[in-house]
């Protein structure tokens, strides 16, 4: 681990209970956070920053539920240490809606019933967001491929595909704000 904490105190192996004190950039804002060095980004977000929008389904990197964006790429926050996230740009579901309302993906997920229990939804939203940034008009095949690492037990995925397609259409429509 090469990341130094902000106050220069470096967590050491013989003192694993000493908290690291760092700045994390989450949803475009810098946050000063102190947490135990072994904590995952998932745990730091949920437990130390109160950002419980990011969910967990296995904490082993198997289900995609805890997906967040790190420097624009979908990452499983359960497999990333909080300390590895210092100096990187972290985006969570809490950062998607703006002053002008829901993000087009959120709007489409709500309108089309792509969120049933809603537990896997934040992970799907962020995975889809990364996809649309790279490919604003993805084919159905591409959507299926890109979302294949996220499990959903409620919807059978079909409404999720439709929501991603609707959001893609909304984003690229003339006059779309985002």
């Amino acid at each position: 681990m090469t990341v130094a904490s902000e106050d220069g105190a470096r967590p050491t192996a013989d003192d694993p209970r000493r908290k690291a004190h760092v700045i994390l950039r989450v949803n475009g804002e810098d946050h000063e956070v102190a947490f135990l060095p072994h904590k995952t980004l998932l745990e730091v977000l949920r437990e130390d920053m109160g950002l419980t929008g990011t969910k967990h389904g296995c904490e082993l990197g198997e289900c995609g539920t805890c997906t967040v964006l790190v420097d624009g790429e979908p990452q499983l926050s359960c497999l990333l240490l909080g300390l590895q996230s210092v100096g990187r740009d972290i985006e969570t579901v809490e950062g998607m809606a703006g002053a002008d309302g829901l993000h087009p993906l959120q709007q489409a997920f709500a309108e089309l019933g792509a969120a049933q229990c809603g537990y896997c939804t934040p992970g799907f939203l962020l995975t889809a967001e990364a996809l649309l940034r790279n490919d604003p008009q993805p084919s159905r095949e591409r959507i299926v491929e890109e979302l294949s690492g996220n499990l959903c037990r409620c919807t059978g995925y079909l409404k999720i595909y439709e929501a991603v397609e609707q959001a893609a259409a909304a984003r690229t429509a003339p006059g779309a704000g985002r």
Partner: peptide
Amino acid sequence: GPAKVTGATRFAD
């Protein structure tokens, strides 16, 4: 719906 898509729904954990 809006709470579910914004992560605002509070599940037990």
